[in-house]
Design a protein around this nucleic acid. Structure first.
Lengths: 134, 134
DNA sequence: CGGCATCCGTACAGATACTG
DNA sequence: CAGTATCTGTACGGATGCCG
């Protein structure tokens, strides 16, 4: 409840950040970012090409099904490239496309913001929970 | 992060964008951004304080339940401030806190990226769909 | 190894009705 | 106007089994 730490802007900035037309495109991206695994997969692929099993190990907790789904969707959107090497055993390598790499910056922003405000958010959450019994 | 393990060394930047420790905080934010309505609500509130009904009209397609849910969550996270004016009829005003406003930049990045790549993504999707018959 | 198909539980999200 | 409560469908996500 103590709003002490932040001199919250009582005055309204009233600065619109997106127009109506711009909003239309947001959902496409948001749907991907909102997906539970997309961000993590992109993060791993940002470090370099990875094979399927490799990704599954790197992205902790992801099931085979979800990893396949995520990769398929990213491939469909042109963010990830899938290369098959006809070897034995079969080897499939996933890597980011140029578009995929550009998304990396976006995720960086996400992470930075998260780190900057995570503590505040956590505290706010605890305070709210304390104020709202049951 | 073993490099060259696969022997396939493409011309990738191989620049890790987040460390393991950093990833932990990502989910908190991602969960909010991934929510279907949060971004839209924040966008509307970025332009100035809004009342409940006002928001419901502005955010097209949102139900009362979801709007309430979204606002509660944002309030809990300290991103939105809720002010009640004991008038008749009751008036409740929602506005962004300082933290909420800072999130605005993040969303701006999101929108910008979306606008930059929306066409490419849409085209890639169509091509993929054409290649993959039902 | 890399994937798809199936079953199934859960959590999300919409519509509706009711309260202060 | 500003919510809360309930019911219900759906889509997400995990586990398992089978195939190339």
């Amino acid at each position: 409840m103590s709003e002490g730490h932040t001199g919250v802007t009582a005055a309204t900035p009233a600065e619109p950040i997106v127009s109506c037309a711009e909003e239309c495109g947001v959902r496409d991206v948001q749907d991907r970012l909102g997906d539970r695994w997309t961000v993590h997969v992109v993060v791993e692929l940002a470090a370099g090409p990875r094979r399927f099993k490799e990704l599954q190990r790197l992205v902790d907790g992801v099931s085979q099904r979800m990893l396949t789904f995520t990769l398929r969707r990213l491939e469909r959107d042109g963010l990830v490239r899938r290369e098959v090497f006809p070897t034995t055993p079969p080897q499939v390598e996933y890597s980011l496309t140029a578009t995929g790499h550009s998304m990396t910056h976006l995720i960086k922003q996400l992470v930075d913001w998260s780190l900057d405000h995570r503590a505040a958010i956590t505290r706010s959450r605890e305070e709210w929970d304390a104020r709202h019994p049951a």
